[in-house]
Write a protein that binds this DNA or RNA. Structure first.
Lengths: 349, 349
DNA sequence: TAGAGCCTGGACAACGTTGTCAGGCCGGGG
DNA sequence: CCCCGGCCTGACAACGTTGTCCAGGCTCTA
């Protein structure tokens, strides 16, 4: 039986297109299997002459080591998983990139998936990644119960949560200072003379949204300003609802003179509303936006450092893997107020 | 010897944290190994009662199938690789997301990496992905020679290039209609009365940049407008150089009355330059930008459909894997001119 | 009641790699 | 001349899973 048909007659077509293996290389080079392994992995103890023969065979056959098999043997995959909400969201781009850079520095690849803000899909993804035996996970939680991860963590999968805290599980968490950032943003408006300030944000069941709301309330309270219910809109998820909420708080008996927006999607919609509005209304938004400086007026924002979030999380993950790191911690990344004009407009009644 | 120490005394600490295997599950449930496999994979031929016992053992031990081993046995990894230039670039967000959605629909995971526009790094990444035995690759080329991929393609790795064509290799390519889009954009300016139109773009060795330049030249030629050398700036990679290029073509003896920008990074910089410029200059940019409609004037763009690029590429990839698709093809995704004001300004001398 | 056929379960090999270990060869020293 | 030590090399088992194949027990029918 000719060597080339060795495999095709056993299994149907599900092989890796009949790729050459170390065995094939060994046969061609006339050496033992282990010698090929040594050459491929740069291990010492191979004569230059032997090495040359092996290299030639590798070249000729187009051999490439099968890392699946390697992983099976060695126990480490040199890959980490990243589960986020939506790869297409501009906030997550720099974050992924930062995680990737750190992974690369540690010789690891990045596998990622979008949960689409759906808890079940998050779990499905995370477990699929665990089945691949990723060495670690960076998760931006969609759900609020992560007990399903317990066996994995116990089994040694390094885990770090980013952007939002995890639910019912002890693990590293890296978040922005949502509370402080929002408070500072609202204080900024108060400092510029505003008292009737509106807040439009996401559903409070999302941790970041709740924290930002708390920042708003605290700033108002500290300034001794009672907050009218009509000034707050929570759960503004669609542009349509944001638009309606903004228009409501801009009309009515006690119209707001300034608005604080809880995330960049909301901010964008509110900018559109204000663009078609006669009275000048001050605006500060959570999250920076590209071209914010080119708007008229420039958009004042509370900027998060997405790259720092990702970098910090990934670094902690690899420290867990090193064994350098033991006790789970909560790390807060500071935000930065960037004044560009829209937040410095005086109240216009 | 107690069962729990079974492995630790053999190998040092490089195991998967001593995870339970099917063998462990089988032992605990008092059944055979293959029976566990059957339950885990939902294969028929297991009594409900046996299945229950197995499920219980799985639950109790926190067992999770090791896909590395599975892959080794089955030959398909159910994962595809995506190599792009920079995850943080807003253009690639929707593209990745689209690829991911298609992968998900086919039950595959997405592994991705950024080449940082570096050919060596691209190759390194691609080969690492091949070593993991991804089923297929979606590559946004950084280099222009992809012969290194030949053994892989021959070995059955489905491959699709996106955004730019591949070099020296036969493979599917999905690109935007860069030529037509740029031509239409410049025609739009001509139609609004401009004759002295500048072009600022990337290095012509990048395929997309060259095509867009060709579109510009063709539109000008078709209109019978001779192009002055000082109207064209190629290789504008840094904001600083873009700024200088723009300022040069706006001053001088024959200043341009309109500018066509070759990509979104250039566009953004030019907007900044024009914002500080007295004379009103028309502008059309290649690539859409978030909030483009909120600028004053609104930014007219030639928009690419990044999601369509990604989706189309991924779909072809899976058709390759199905065996439905055989001959490599070049697919062009149309662009769309979106007029928002900046491109409709009349020439102001 | 015996035989045929079906259903369930398990033993075993194989996937491609790496760690362990032992054997062969060579040169130098006793 | 023999023995020892060091250096290369290769045989073999193991990683955890799945496909193949066979055995045993059951039911159903003649």
């Amino acid at each position: 039986m000719p060597e080339t048909t060795r495999r095709t007659d056993r299994l149907p077509g599900n092989r890796y297109g009949n790729r050459p293996t170390m065995k094939d290389v060994a046969a061609r080079a006339g050496v033992g299997l282990k010698t090929v392994s040594r050459v491929v992995n740069g291990e010492p103890g191979v004569t230059p002459e032997t090495e040359r023969r092996v290299q030639e065979a590798i070249e000729a056959l187009g051999f490439r080591r099968n890392d699946s098999a390697r992983v099976l043997r060695k126990g480490r995959t040199a890959s980490i998983g990243l589960v986020l909400e939506d790869l297409a969201d501009p906030f997550y781009g720099p974050l992924s990139r930062a995680v990737e850079e750190v992974a690369r520095a540690h010789g690891a690849l990045l596998i990622n998936g979008s949960s689409a803000e759906d808890a079940d899909r998050e779990q499905e993804l995370v477990l699929a990644l665990c089945a691949r035996r990723v060495d670690g996970l960076v998760v931006i939680p969609a759900g609020d119960d992560h007990r399903y991860l317990e066996p994995e963590v116990k089994a040694g999968v390094a885990t770090v949560f980013v952007d939002r805290p995890a639910g019912h599980i002890k693990a590293d968490v890296v978040v922005s200072d949502n509370f402080g950032g929002a408070r500072d943003g609202v204080r900024h408006l108060i400092a510029h003379g505003h008292r009737r300030i509106g807040f439009i944000g996401d559903m409070p069941r999302i941790h970041t949204a709740a924290e930002r709301l708390r920042g708003y309330r605290t700033a108002m309270e500290d300034a001794g300003i009672p907050v009218a219910d009509s000034w707050m809109s929570l759960g503004a998820t669609t542009p349509e609802r944001v638009r309606r909420a903004a228009e409501e708080m801009l009309s009515g008996p006690e119209p707001v003179t300034a608005i604080f927006t809880g995330n960049n999607r909301v901010t964008v919609t509110v900018i559109r509303v204000l663009a078609g509005h006669a009275r000048r209304v001050a605006l500060v938004g959570f999250d920076d936006i590209e071209l914010a400086d080119l708007l008229e007026p420039g958009l004042t924002v509370v900027a998060q450092d997405a790259a720092a979030l990702g970098r910090t999380a990934a670094e902690r993950l690899f420290r867990q893997l090193d064994g350098t790191l033991l006790t789970p911690e909560r790390i807060e990344i500071p935000t930065r107020l960037i004044a560009r004009g829209s937040g410095e407009l005086p109240p216009a009644d």
